[in-house]
Design a binder for these strands. Structure first.
Lengths: 248, 248
DNA sequence: CGGACAGTTGATCCCGTTCAAGAAACGTGG
DNA sequence: CCACGTTTCTTGAACGGGATCAACTGTCCG
């Protein structure tokens, strides 16, 4: 029982945006898996690796990342507990980016072949995983817009708004108060800025009264105003897909 | 016969990276569709639209795009004939970006419900479409790296390398000689630069002997060298997935 | 107590932007 | 086939947002 409940977050996540019947849910919970602890900074996956398993983040935070020959690093996404990390490993042969632990993490890993078999046997689950991938892509595109076309203040503000909203949606925090599990250097790598400039930008947001910081905990004083300067509209997160509500 | 051949490019595209049996191929070809011509600059899809159909680009070029409140535009991807444009419309409820014709286009549209039914009935096709989505995501992430962490020269060079390689892979041009269907302003919007700076950067690439331009036709004189300064590695395009070769 | 790392701040520099204007290319209609 | 308006390309000059370099401060932890 305790064993079969470990993959419950996968069901929760997929069911949050896709309709799943009882049989589908059971099939997911019955997937063979291993749990694993990973230390801060450790790699889950390296670019170029032959993929063998996908993983689910049970606790802690992680991120995806790519490096440029000249040494630069671009953080591509941030993952919170419950996220299906690297679902693509089930389908693509070679990893095209690095996946790394942001903090100490617990995760469950499922073999590539088991996921493929499940997708083959249960079309609704396959569809749900496809939806998850599409939402992931939507977030990547919003990040591309963020880095390509917003100024430093907008980029940082947008990242904060998104992180808060996702934490809220996962039931892990309020949208206007949370701890950001990233150093300023990591924030810089996520926004295409430098650590120094991130520091100044955060200071400016603080001084203009939009946020209050203590350590890495952020309180957003005026969420409306911050979303405004961030040009944040949550549509791209697709939080309101035809999941549980409609399935009921 | 002539009618059923119109969707052949879909089969070609999906089979290029995924194994499809004869029945799968036939099921795709038998999808109900409409063909449509679209003028330059016209919108296929607008952000916020309720999705109704996906489309396949039969001829011409298109791009996906998002706008920022302050007026900026970020081009998210460029599509060439044979690309499955907006496959996500089959699955997500609301469009999260705009899709626009770059040149006059011909396309085939397939109803959302028909694609879902096909995915449900033929798991291998569902998997193939999922793979297509994943590759799309991989390209987005590379673009994010491009815009976030490369300088102007690297960005333009990378875009040229990618476009050439994709054209070659689709059998539409050589990797070192092709016409770019984008104005300099559009190149700017794809790379997070300004049109003026794109102009100067192209001039520099030309003057340093890496490329030769005539109109919008680019000849890459030293592909090796250009890929070097672009930090281009084609792995992220996943051109060598387990497609036709392995299926045979 | 000391060593490492994250955060902070100042001074200076530079890549890419902005503004402006002229030159080419392109379609369109007479 | 040419005249003409429009869009795209091109180039110069000046500016500025963010980068870079460097030093200092806090803070966590062994």
């Amino acid at each position: 029982m305790s064993d079969t409940a470990i993959l419950a977050p996968v069901v929760r996540k997929l069911a949050s945006h896709s309709a799943l019947e009882e049989d589908d849910r059971r099939a997911i919970l019955e997937l063979p898996f291993h749990t694993q602890s990973v230390e801060r900074e450790m790699y889950f996956v390296r670019e170029g690796d032959r993929t063998e398993h996908s993983c689910l983040l049970l606790s802690g935070y992680a991120f995806r990342q790519k490096l440029v020959a000249s040494g630069g690093r671009q953080i591509l996404s941030i993952h919170i507990p419950g996220d299906l990390l690297d679902l693509q490993a089930a389908v693509l042969e070679i990893a095209d980016h690095n996946v790394q632990a942001l903090t100490r993490c617990k995760m469950a890993t499922v073999a590539r072949s088991d996921i493929r078999a499940l997708a083959h046997k249960r079309p609704a689950v396959a569809l749900a995983m496809w939806v998850d991938t599409l939402i992931d892509g939507s977030i990547s595109r919003e990040w591309l817009l963020n880095v390509g076309r917003r100024d430093a203040q907008g980029r940082i503000a947008h990242l904060l708004c998104e992180f808060g909203r996702r934490m809220e949606s996962a039931g892990l925090a309020r949208a206007d108060r949370f701890e950001v599990p990233l150093s300023q250097e990591q924030l810089a790598d996520a926004t295409g800025l430098t650590a120094v400039h991130v520091n100044r930008t955060l200071r400016n947001l603080d001084r203009s009264g939009l946020i209050v910081r203590s350590g890495r905990t952020i309180r957003i004083t005026d969420l409306e105003a911050l979303r405004d300067i961030a040009d944040f509209s949550e549509q791209y997160l697709h939080l309101d897909q035809d999941g549980d509500r409609k399935a009921a």
